[in-house]
Amino acid sequence: MSEFKTLTKQGLWENNPALVQLLGLCPLLAVTASVTNALGLGLATLFVLIGSNITVSLVRQWVPQEIRIPVFVMVIATFVTIIQLLMNAYVYQLYQTLGIFIPLIVTNCAIIGRAEAYASKNKWNYAAVDGLMMGLGFAAVLVVLGGLREVLGNGTLFDGAELLLGEWAKQLRIELFSLDYPLLLAILPPGAFIGMGFIIAIKNRIDAKRAQLHKTEKTVTRARVTAES
């Protein structure tokens, strides 16, 4: 399997930052009350992750061990601040909703984790793909959780998508059902925890099922400690 394929698989499923590494939970739990918010923060994280991964990978040769973390944090903080400024300038409505969570991306462990674990050890093109896939994986979980909570708590999907994507996105809004009494719990933070728990449980269940199905009979050649000497 090529490195790119591995990276894709790792980022989207096997080593998904939100579901497996359980990183970046703070923004994840806070902003996933609706799909729009989730998508917004997911995209922001994705851009920061790609940017920081590429940058870190490019400068990795020059950064000595001791100041690695400060430099990485600085790189990430720069990207986050730039994105924050850009959002403030061009998607103001969304910025108002996500505003307080954007700076949290700086300390999103998913990002520094990738910088540390992957980008600082690999070439920039691999690092970029890693960032892309991890970011997509993270965003995907955000969107799924956001969808889950929005449906349960509000009966809609893509409510307010126009804030993020422009006027045309108003058509995206789907009203699944009208709730007289929304399930408030789904929208409140505890709902995020419970929903996250269920998503992780389902993922583990799928993995277990797959492991059962694909139980290949691989044989491992036994090493002889005492080869004829």
Partner: peptide
């Protein structure tokens, strides 16, 4: 508690 948080009215 789930009920109380989710459906305070009822």
């Amino acid at each position: 508690v789930l009920l109380l948080i989710s459906f305070p009215v009822q």
